[in-house]
Design a protein around this nucleic acid. Structure first.
Lengths: 206, 206
DNA sequence: ACTATAATGTGAAATAATTCACATATATGA
DNA sequence: TCATATATGTGAATTATTTCACATTATAGT
């Protein structure tokens, strides 16, 4: 079923998911594509197109059953099954992310965090005991972790990424401003905070 | 000159900028579109198209003069002129961002940080003295700050955004998972960390 | 039961972004 | 100076994504 639809569709599905959950708590039962679209300030046809990639999920004349749709999206996105992840680099950003609640809600569990610093290794950082970077290979393999968040300093990013690949990691969320070069078997996604701020600022009138 | 080119073009310009700076330090003088493209794993035609939006910046048969191109991109992106920004919400993420080096390199200066907590206000967090949220309007106006990073808890995001708008903020980098509703005069850009991780994970083979 | 209204699902059209392909210009070496 | 190789800049083609438009189906009110 994969890759006949835009990546953006998946991201919007996630946004729908959040709103549907919220509406469930409110006790609402049905929602139209227009209703969802208005909340997100997008076109209703976009909502329908997105959902149509995954079947006929609505009911003509009535809309979408919120509970059903929420569950279907959870299924599509694989939110039911918890996935263990690790964070490598417990600097400011790394430790902030280790405490970030948003990951858990989408089915992620931070099961390991690493750093090289002697001051951190063995100690709790935001409730997580920090493992030694020298045990990276061993621990990631033992725990069969496939997803890593990379928050090390730029100058050790590539080297750390290689170690992650070797340890069996299949996906890296890269917060460093470095273009990582790994085999195609490893999916990389870059989150470039400075770039986001600059993009915003560029398209803003002074 | 604005908005005849894709937003992605601006983002790539920024990546080019980083590489050009690096190459300058190495002492290289010229680079071809192919050279740049290979570094970023994109098409060389993409590089040429991106640059062509801003003039004839290269020399046929020779390529691009690295110093000239770097300066031209800095000019396009407005990197020379420092811009003051503020961060609202000094939780884990906010304080990590207040210490983040990447912003400075692109011409941003974090001149104010805010929180509501009595324990934080008046104290230094990562080198920044935290201002009281109740002084938000006054301080942002006084300092003519136009850009804000929003890292407050989800349940106060919308309300804080409204306060920011009132204080004259024209652009918000929103790290909360909340769809902010403001007048069109305020540019909003969302950074949704959980969504990034989920997108990555979705397109990864288990 | 009938009519008016609401809403989906989906090809087709429109829009946007990327990549191709090549005419044109420059550089280099013999 | 000429031939060959290199590399830009750009209109055209391609590919991707969004939006339109409408046939179809369901609902609600009378």
């Amino acid at each position: 079923m994969r890759k006949h639809f835009p990546e953006r569709t998946i991201q919007r599905l996630l946004l729908y998911y959040r709103y549907l959950n919220f509406m469930l708590q409110q006790g609402t039962k049905m929602i139209s594509s227009r209703g969802l679209a208005d909340l997100l300030e997008i076109m209703d046809s976009q909502v329908r197109k997105d959902l149509s990639y995954f079947g006929k999920l609505g009911k003509r004349g009535a809309g979408y059953d919120i509970l059903e749709l929420r569950n279907k999206i959870a299924e599509i996105l694989g939110i039911k099954s918890k996935k263990n992840i690790c964070i490598v680099g417990m600097g400011n950003l790394g430790s902030a992310l280790s405490a970030y609640k948003g990951f858990e809600e989408l089915g992620f569990n931070i099961s390991l965090v690493f750093d090289v610093s002697e001051q951190k290794v063995g100690h709790k950082i935001k409730g997580q005991i920090c493992s030694n970077y020298s045990d990276l290979l061993k621990l990631i393999k033992e725990n069969s972790i496939k997803i890593a968040i990379l928050t090390v300093p730029a100058n050790s990013a590539q080297e750390t990424a290689l170690a992650l690949e070797k340890s069996g990691i299949k996906a890296i969320l890269n917060f460093t401003p470095v273009k990582l070069t790994l085999s195609k078997a490893v999916k990389i996604r870059n989150v470039d905070l400075a770039l986001e701020l600059k993009t915003l600022s560029f398209f803003t009138e002074d």
